[in-house]
Write a protein that binds this DNA or RNA. Structure first.
Length: 780
DNA sequence: TACGGCCAACTTTTT
DNA sequence: GTTGGCCGTA
């Protein structure tokens, strides 16, 4: 099972050290080592698969690890403790919900609903955006939780803002507990508190787990570290795998110190470095090594390969971002002609805002593409609204869900009425649902709701109750269809304009079919789902089972387990937004989301100071180091060919700015780089180099001139679709000569025919907009 | 309740 | 240049 491993990998896999740190460079077979070690422990060391805890950050990594362990060990293991930090913490809370102070039906609050709750709290506390934004409160709450601090544990708040923030945190937390809602950070915080406050629970797991394996350790934050420490028993071994050079989530609380200082924290740590790279050419590795070696705060590693030098790294200096995009698209097409699939080519960028221009160029070049990181299916408003009904059915205390659907679709419960319900909830320390019920129950007394508002709220409550009733006998997918129809969600979207209506109704259908795969879970018990076979006989759970025999009064409805499972899935595992493996499309994504992926051909765009490194990081040397690590991640995504590009002029927030090439480009040894000044379409020509580039632009696809034309035509509505080719020698990047201003380069084109305007950047006269028909530009 | 107009803000993001 | 929030009007 450790066949085909290199010596370093072999040492890591079969290490006997209790504390093992594997520093795995990019492309050095990290996952393979982790999986082989797990398989070796189970297969050769006799460790029970249930006594192994393997933790990752993404569901994708967890799923991969699980299937690979299963195939290496040739077994199919249910209940293995392999998962994400959040998924495993959630599992602990599901098993020990009572000790964790939760309702059995507790639900997970996603980032969007968290922000909505905070906005509500800001309004109630009269905090305006000029004080601070809900986003800041969200950031504050999540960082406090990530540091392991409950509202009570936050230290002194010196200024007014800190006090207010703390107040928002306390109120938010109180409301979450009221509703038995757990946000992402709370999954970890609460399961940590569960272990800390219940010695018999932590003793169980500290004894149970003989080996803990952690992937991407450089990304762990403070609470994840504490969580691992708490699970670490006296005889538990800990293997961590990671790469300090790929720590790019410091801004989100990741503590690079966790991996840097690991050997100091755990005496006797063995460190194994994996430096042989199986992914990239020697040239790409030389560039990556050179860049990352500029960082001071690192353990130090140097990647090497037995492979060839490969092609030099391309460097393209574009005139502006359109030219940059155009060049990249041309290169993609050329590589495609040379037999490289679109899906093996990726365009990476520092910030999402950069994707638009690239997308436009791809559309006009008719190149299929796929963007990672847009709105996910379960984040769409129509889906979230429908899910909120399901949540309310499963847990009426869920105030976030209540707020979302109480007047959606509009049913005459206006803001005033909802405000009355909120005030009552506040007064009675109750959920919105209970408050609404009590207001209805008081009839038309002066205390309660009156007239139309009362009827509307009563009808709403009655409707949700009827759904709960259906939930007992309906399958989840039947229930979902029923809700969409009965709550008139479909009728609401049917009223919208055609294109939107179409896609929204299709999404609702898609939602129903997504629920179908959960229908078969209806009869599952929580124990089936969360326990592993070795836990069934645990004495600790006997007590809980006996408790469960006498039902507690707060249990309201027998919850359909497929509903619970589906909502968990949506909250914790809806994240993957990947291209289908068989779809041949160029991949577009931020460098952050490219981590862990690899592509034969990578275009690293926007290599400019202020963009990459980002303006926000340029003041602080530790932030610059993180940007540099990000650059290292970007470079090492490429297997065969890497192209770096930057624009000399870029539009940022609607303003054109001159740029300087990124310092990271200058940190790459010049012998690794070949500047590309033209599209490599070569053809016999008497034109100079620069004009050749222009030829390449003009020859492929319709070009930006036409794009601008189309825009002008649709906005003005008065022009025909016929394009005159009179001015077609004017394309982006063409070198032109003007009688008065001299030589310059075309930066942009607008309009067509007699009305065509061009922006030319003249060598001496600077940038000017000219009417093409008057300016009489000549190509050089 | 729904819209259009005006203003301010603006990295990176899995769970 | 695009988005989200707020406010006034039909």
């Amino acid at each position: 099972m450790s066949q085909g491993l290199n010596p370093a990998q072999h040492n890591a896999v079969e290490s006997q050290a209790r504390f093992l740190r594997v520093l795995a460079g990019a492309g050095s077979g990290k996952t393979r080592v982790l999986v082989s070690r797990a398989a070796w422990l189970i297969g050769s060391q006799g460790v029970s698969p249930y006594r192994l805890l393997a933790v990752t950050f993404t569901n994708k990594a967890a799923a991969e690890m699980r299937t690979r362990i299963e195939s290496l060990c040739n077994m199919n293991v249910r209940g293995m403790w392999v998962g994400t930090f959040h998924g495993l913490a959630h599992r602990l809370l599901r098993i020990h919900w009572r000790d964790a102070g939760l309702l059995e039906e507790f639900q997970i609050l996603d980032a969007d609903d968290q922000l909505r709750m905070i906005k509500r709290i800001h309004k109630d506390h009269n905090i305006t955006d000029t004080d601070f934004t809900p986003k800041l409160s969200k950031w504050y709450i999540n960082s406090e939780k990530d540091a392991g601090r409950t509202p009570a544990e936050v230290g002194e708040c010196n200024d007014r803002q800190a006090q207010l923030l703390h107040q928002v945190y306390s109120t938010y937390q109180k409301q979450c507990e009221q509703s038995s809602l757990v946000d992402f950070a709370e999954l970890l915080l609460r399961s940590l508190k569960l272990l800390q406050n219940n010695p018999e629970v932590s003793a169980l797991y500290r004894h149970k787990f003989q080996h803990i394996l952690v992937d991407e350790f450089q990304d762990t934050n403070s609470i994840q570290y504490q969580w691992l420490e708490t699970l670490l028993g006296e005889a538990t071994s800990l293997t961590i795998v990671g790469d300090d050079d790929q720590s790019i989530y410091g801004w989100r609380g990741a503590q690079i110190q966790n991996i840097l200082g690991f050997a100091d924290s755990f005496a006797g740590t063995e460190t194994v470095r994996l430096e042989q790279n199986y992914r990239s050419t020697a040239t790409i590795l030389a560039a990556a090594n050179a860049v990352i070696s500029q960082n001071q705060n690192r353990l130090g590693k140097s990647l090497w390969t037995e492979g060839d030098a490969g092609q030099p790294i391309g460097l393209y200096a574009a005139y502006n971002e359109q030219d940059e995009a155009k060049y990249i698209v041309d290169q993609i097409k050329q590589h495609k002609e040379q037999g490289k699939h679109y899906k093996s080519q990726a365009i990476l960028y520092r910030s999402n805002a950069q994707s638009r221009v690239l997308e436009e160029a791809l559309i006009y070049g008719r190149v299929p593409y796929r963007i990672y990181g847009g709105l996910r299916f379960f984040d769409r408003a129509e889906i979230k609204n429908t899910l909120a009904y399901l949540r309310l059915i499963g847990l009426t205390q869920d105030d976030a869900a209540f707020e979302r659907v109480v007047n959606f679709p509009t049913r005459g419960i206006g803001d005033r009425t909802v405000q009355i319900i909120r005030e009552r909830a506040l007064r009675d320390d109750a959920s919105l649902w209970v408050a609404a019920e009590s207001l209805i129950a008081q009839g038309s007394s002066s205390e309660g709701l009156k007239g139309r508002a009362r009827n509307a709220v009563a009808a709403f409550i009655e409707m949700i109750r009827s759904f709960q009733h259906k939930a007992i006998n309906y399958s989840l997918s039947e229930l979902t269809s029923f809700v969409i129809f009965e709550a008139q969600i479909d009728a609401h979207y049917n009223k919208e304009p055609h294109e939107q209506k179409q896609s929204k109704l299709e999404n609702l259908k898609e939602l129903v079919s997504a629920t179908q795969s959960f229908d078969h879970l209806a009869q599952m018990t929580p124990e089936d789902k969360w326990f592993d076979p070795e836990m069934v006989n645990e004495p600790l759970f006997e007590a809980h089972r006996n408790q469960a025999v006498s039902p507690s009064p707060e249990v309201q409805v027998t919850v359909n387990q497929s509903l619970v499972a589906f909502l968990e899935h949506v909250a914790l595992e809806s994240g993957e937004r990947q291209a289908d493996a068989f779809e041949d499309a160029v991949q577009l994504m931020t460098i952050h989301s490219a981590k862990g992926l690899e592509f034969p051909i990578v275009y690293l765009s926007g290599m400019e100071e202020g963009l990459f490194p980002s303006q926000m990081s340029m003041q602080d040397s530790s932030k610059i180091e993180e940007e540099r690590r990000l650059c290292y991640v970007g470079i090492t995504r490429a297997e065969e060919y890497l192209l770096l590009s930057h624009a000399e002029v870029r539009r940022i927030y609607g303003e054109e700015r001159r740029t300087r090439v990124s310092r990271f480009v200058r940190e790459i040894p010049s012998e690794c780089i070949q500047e590309v000044r033209l599209g490599s379409i070569t053809r016999p020509s008497t034109l100079g180099n620069r004009s050749l580039a222009s030829e390449a632009f003009a020859s492929s696809s319709s070009g930006y001139a036409h794009f601008s034309n189309n825009q002008a035509a649709t906005t003005s509505g008065s022009q025909g679709a016929v394009s005159s080719d009179d001015e077609s020698y004017l394309t982006l990047g063409t070198n032109v000569q003007h009688k008065i201003f001299g030589e310059g380069v075309i930066l942009a084109l607008e309009g067509k025919g007699a009305r065509q305007r061009v922006q030319v950047n003249f060598k001496t006269a600077g940038s000017k907009w000219l009417m093409a028909s008057i300016a009489q530009l000549e190509t050089v």
